[in-house]
C-alpha cells in the first residue's frame, strides 16, 4: 500500500521535500519511522510528532492506508 507523508518545518529541509509517497506493507508508526530513519539519518536526531489522518497518534499506532504528517515543535515568535 502507499503511504503519503507530509513534512513540516525543519523536517522538510532535512528530507528535501514537503511530501512524498512511499510504498509500505503494514505495521505501526514506529515501523515506518525506521524506514525513514534509514533514508534520512538526520531525522533520528530530530524531535517530532506524527499525525495520521489529521490526528496526533502514538508511536505504536497501526498505520492504515492513509496520510501521515511529521510535525516538529516550533519555537519562533
Amino acid at each position: 500500500m502507499n503511504l503519503k507523508i507530509k513534512y513540516f518545518g525543519v523536517l522538510a529541509e532535512i528530507t528535501n521535500c514537503s511530501e512524498e509517497t512511499i510504498a509500505y506493507t503494514k505495521g505501526s508508526v514506529s515501523d515506518v519511522l525506521m524506514l525513514l530513519f534509514e533514508k534520512y539519518p538526520t531525522l533520528k536526531e530530530t524531535d517530532f510528532q506524527v499525525a495520521q489522518d489529521l490526528e496526533i497518534v502514538s508511536k505504536d499506532t497501526l498505520l492504515l492506508e492513509s496520510e501521515i504528517a511529521l510535525l516538529p515543535p516550533f519555537s519562533g515568535g
Binding site: 536526531e45 530530530t46 524531535d47 516550533f74 519555537s75
Partner: peptide, 20 residues
C-alpha cells in the same frame, strides 16, 4: 500533551536568527 518535553538540546534551531 503535544510535545511532552523540550526537544533534545539544540535539535531545533530557535536561538540563532534563522529569518522569518
Amino acid at each position: 500533551c503535544l510535545f511532552a518535553t523540550p526537544p533534545k538540546e539544540g535539535s531545533v534551531p530557535n536561538c540563532s536568527e534563522i529569518g522569518v
